[in-house]
Amino acid sequence: MSSHNATAPHYFVPGPSQWPVLGGATLLTTMIGASAWVNGLQWGAYLNFVGIFLTLVVLYKWFGDAIAESESGKYSARIDVSFRWSMSWFIFSEVMFFGAFFGALFYARSISMPWLADLDHKVLWPDFAGIWGGTGPAGVVESFKTMGPFPIPTINTALLLTSGVTLTIAHHAIREGQRSKTAFWLFATVLLGAIFMGFQAYEYMHAYSELNLKLTSGIYGSTFFMLTGFHGFHVTMGAIMLSVVLYRVMKGHFTPEHHFAFEGAAWYWHFVDVVWLGLYVVVYWM
């Protein structure tokens, strides 16, 4: 219940809300759809999309409520701190998620691969050489070429690094209360993100059509596409967050002191940046 009036501005607690339970229902729909879909049922795909769409609608309404509360001044400085903690811990959870996939890459490459190729394993795989980016011991993987750092990944690195800079310029601008400058640099950041995604999509097409490098290309393809794919998904999420912030900046939200939505999205963007640097080194260079 919202129960704080001006004399006791302590901690705003929102009143009953239908969005969480609806979100649960829409996610259930999404997951039922997904379960059916991956098992080859066509209706599953539709149900999955309906579920995702409805989930997005719920999130839209929910965040709409939150933004309205924020703009009407209900969020005290203490709530601001709560948001900071929560965003930091959320990003930590994302770090651990990527950690699982980086861990898999490390394990497969540095432990399983040499193992499969060692002397004992000649019993099973007499001809396996244990080269990273090869076709796997059983020869069931079609041969493919691996992806190097040039030119696209390097261009993409530059794009993301630049986007980090533009975002920081935007942040300085908002702190100085320069709304149109903020909007401009935010827009530039989102645009760089979009170009990044464009290149990434191009790189995937190149991989599939020219390198014969696919999701099914053994452990190399698995880790390559899952790591870069999840990263790309996160870039997209980050870009959406920044777009919402941009829209709110243009609508006149935020003040030089109060703009946590901006900062949270910015932290997220920097996190996505850092993940990319990790990818750039261990996926493309090593």
């Binding site: 069931v140 452990i219 698995s222």
Partner: peptide
């Protein structure tokens, strides 16, 4: 929890999308 999510996501892609995380034939384990 995110690490568990990662593990079962790999299981899902191994099951349906042809990845080889846990399949020695493709170099996984």
């Amino acid at each position: 929890m995110p690490v568990l999510a990662g593990a079962i996501t790999m299981t899902l892609t191994d099951r349906h999308f042809g990845t080889s995380f846990f399949n020695a034939a493709g170099g996984g384990d």
